[in-house]
Write a protein that binds this DNA or RNA. Structure first.
Lengths: 179, 179
DNA sequence: AAATAACTGAACATATTGTTCAGTATCTTA
DNA sequence: TAAGATACTGAACAATATGTTCAGTTATTT
């Protein structure tokens, strides 16, 4: 990618995250972002269509990183072994823990829910592969979704409670999951 | 309350829910709401400050109903008996099931997350009273929050999956909770 | 019937949005 | 390194939304 483009993208993302934590999503105008990022008006519009579009792009870029090293492993590992799932999830926790400063701000802002939706969609895919059977009478779909929302909400909880390691948090999550 | 006021409020709420399901939150302008509700511009602003304010008022009014008959019971019932909690929650499911047409639209829209936040806050209060002890090593706060998000998310799941009764859904939720 | 309170709707200043375009800077590749 | 392609700039534009004000109308209460 052209260095000019990625420079612009980074400037916009940084400005946006700053503004999100300062003023929230709805109070942040595109004009604010342009001024803060110090780019031309038409440049913004050549990269993003709307503020929503920008938010989606930001979430995508974050999860590209957190889930990036998953795909290759998916092929070679046996997911029917529970410990692999646990390792996989811990790995995601490490990633998110490293970009905490970034993620914490987004989750605390109005647009935290959009972030959560992305996260959950990704997780749903992970759990759908893993879960083979559910208790009698429980819809498969419910069981899968429940894992995804529990894990994503656990992360949101973590981001607003300092002092826990990824392993701690994995322990909390797993305690209710493991069976 | 003056009949004129409640008439205006209802007209605005109805117009708003319609527009939410049609266009989503961010694409709905205050002007849209005013036109659809067929009220004067200044009337809207004498009732609500902003679109956000309106959304909050709408959520409040819905939960006033769903949680309304809780308070009196709270005094007379013994919450350390698990079956009371289950009845309490089932009761909420009935309420939400009755106003499904209303709630389903909001939950499916952009502003579903705001609705969820309200719901969860209410539920957190309910569970905080109920939960006296948690497993060794699990933060109390996490355990309580987890119940609240599990129940609220279960409702959201229900609202996008037709054909289940309140009892069915209570069964799904309780299966993972009951211990 | 009089007093009080709510609604109306036009008019207003202000601000944001999304687009266009001619000019400038940067990158690529031949 | 020169030429061509690509990206950025920033001013100007029309269109739209916002939030406020106020004099006039209608409904409710006492």
């Amino acid at each position: 990618m052209d260095r000019r483009q990625s420079k612009t993208r980074k400037a916009v993302f940084n400005a946006f995250v700053e503004l999100l934590t300062e003023k929230g999503y709805s109070n942040t105008t595109i004009q604010d972002i342009i001024s803060r990022a110090d780019i031309g008006r038409s440049t913004f519009y050549s990269h993003f269509q709307t503020k929503d579009d920008l938010l989606n792009a930001l979430c995508e870029s974050i999860f590209d990183h957190a889930f990036s090293e998953q795909s290759p492993k998916e092929e070679s590992h046996d997911f029917s072994d529970r410990r692999d799932l646990r390792g996989e999830l811990t790995h995601i926790l490490y990633h998110l823990g490293e970009s905490r400063g970034y993620v914490e701000g987004i989750l605390a802002s109005e647009s935290g829910d959009v972030f959560m939706r992305y996260f959950r969609d990704q997780l749903t895919g992970v759990f759908r592969k893993e879960i083979k059977e559910v208790p009698e009478g429980i819809p498969m779909d419910y069981a899968v979704e429940r894992c995804a929302w529990d894990f994503s909400e656990t992360v949101r909880w973590w981001m607003s409670h300092d002092g826990y390691s990824p392993e701690d948090v994995m322990g909390f999550f797993w305690h209710y999951m493991g069976r």
